[in-house]
Design a protein around this nucleic acid. Structure first.
Lengths: 201, 201, 201, 201
DNA sequence: AATGAATGAGAGTTCATTCAT
DNA sequence: AATGAATGAACTCTCATTCAT
């Protein structure tokens, strides 16, 4: 019933298309990219795409799925920090950096763009990535919150603020900010310091 | 040379179109909206749009210009905080909230989406809104940085982190986060507290 | 009933529009010219055009009418040649040259272009200009035909060949032929010589 | 690398579209014809046109190319006249007649019309058809010119007059002249006689 | 499974013409 | 009579998707 060789072939083609699409999307954006562009880049016929994907949007979903896999794979180390607050924060902050320092940055731009507009994609991102991450953080920082008399809601909001900071910094970078571009590697440290110690009064 | 009545009529029609476009864009997104949709919503003929805008994209730019006007008008109070750090931070954080609590939220989504993909719009946002805001903040916090032995670069990065946090929180809200939706009014306080005092160790 | 001042005003406006239209048509062609172009050039409002012309095509007709007036005015000298064959031929050949050496050349291009496609205009040209001219020539050359044993039909065809030569030379000029451009003034003489004496065997 | 079956299919479709376009253009003119008209006439979808032509104008160019091929193919016999003046003239005059006696006549009208207005097309016609033809004639009549003491320039102008006569006669025919229509077959003889012997004094 | 030609709905935009002022 | 904003039909061209081979 399940032919593993078949499956491999399918997976290979699927990835081939996803790679091509990711490359062209990153260059031109989702809407400006035609299925013809994708096919050409993948070195296949336009029609072949539709053997593996029902829709141009489905390709974007596919790209998203792969990104998700990467992100989730990376959140394992977070579970190994074992309670030490500064380490937890630092780890939280450093991850997205590692993931996106590669060429995925341009792609993130596209996915984010489409996410703002496509409810389904937005839902997928929230349910499958953002929410689990936030929940994980809540769990890990629960003790700390108790120690510091932080209400559960306050904790949740704080965590959202931290997560938001990460996302916001990436967007500012995308916007073309030179300062962030020039000191991108030190950003996690600065951010971690800010989060832990505050800016002072 | 300048007929004020004419100008008013032009301004009125322009705004009428902008309002209609904003509404439809917010509902369906920029690409999914047709010029026909806009015309219908505005109660005018499709061709009339092109008396006031050269291009569908120009309408989006027009929307952006109006948003800019609002944002800049609101940044005046920031200059009146007169050096008190907590007040500065709190003011910085509270503004976007005021601006966007209305229906502009959905619109912000669209503009952001297009910004990720449209270089011109991105440039406009960065040059005309983000950069001036960041620069203003730098000026206001310069003294504080000196007192706390913060290098100019560290200050710049910190400010970017704070600004990023604001933007990130809005995006998380857009993503559909219930916690943020339910406690949206207390977010500025929580965020300000986090920035000023830190999360602790 | 007939107010002469009114009529003058109307004639003036009509000509103003016709001048403007002729100029723009000559530059950009009939289809590429918009009523807006014409209005701008004439220094009037777009709507005003329709007080004097029912249609954009009607303007072209108007231009044609004025050209006709010029051409017919010029054919008077032809009647004064008084039978001398070489003079007749030379006169026939020289006229169009005089008319078109001015800026009308570009305009002729446009009218010809539209004539090829617009039956009404074509008919007007044939009935009001070409046919009368051919008939006039037939009358004037009737004696000569008899003397040379030329059948009436042969005469008619010969006349059409001569008239065709004139038109064809103008078209070749329009096509951009350098030789004709450089020796445009001597063309009537060469042509007359060819018609009268022939090219030889 | 070159698949002959593919090429045939492409050529077939291209011609199918060209035929349809030629027919509709001839009926309604270039501008009055819509791509929809062409598609309908060709029995294909509108979009299919654009697999074979980049532009509506490109279709006109394609038609022109085919006309060119016909004309050039027909100019071979001219080279075989072997110096005999009357034969040369007669051959020169008879050719266009053969080419255009079919339904191409209406089409010639359209191409001419557009040529008056479209610089590119005009250039193509001049460089690829008219100029080569004129040059060929110059070569063939060089000896004759010398014998009759005709300067090179006079020869060139004379040839242009003859070529112009042909074109002019066709235009007069297009204009609806009954005489030419009724005696179209004898026109080349009359014209040749006129050219060779002249009209007399 | 792969191809790529064919499809046709639909998009943005133009512009001759109308009409309220 | 003059204006010029408004109109909306109509245009060319694009492109995601289908389907015969």
């Amino acid at each position: 019933m399940i032919d593993p060789i078949q499956q491999q072939r399918i997976a290979a083609r699927t990835n081939q298309i996803l790679d091509a699409a990711a490359a062209v999307f990153a260059e031109k954006g989702f809407h400006a990219t035609t299925t013809r562009d994708i096919a050409r880049r993948a070195g296949i016929a336009e029609g072949t795409i539709y053997t593996y994907f029902t829709t141009k949007t489905a390709i974007l979903m596919g790209i998203f799925e792969r990104m998700k896999a990467v992100v989730l794979a990376d959140s394992i180390p977070l579970e190994a920090t074992d309670g030490d607050m500064p380490t937890i924060i630092r780890t939280m902050l450093q991850h997205p950096w590692t993931d996106l320092k590669t060429d995925n940055f341009a792609l993130f731009r596209i996915v984010l763009s489409e996410m703002m507009v496509n409810e389904e994609l937005r839902g997928m991102y929230y349910t499958q990535i953002l929410e689990p991450t936030l929940t994980l953080a809540e769990t890990m920082l629960a003790d700390h919150a108790v120690r510091h008399n932080l209400s559960p809601t306050a904790l949740k909001l704080t965590i959202r603020a931290v997560a938001g900071m990460i996302m916001g910094l990436m967007i500012e970078h995308i916007m073309g900010d030179r300062i962030l571009a020039d000191h991108w590697d030190t950003v996690p440290d600065i951010a971690a310091d800010l989060i832990i110690n505050g800016f002072g009064t």
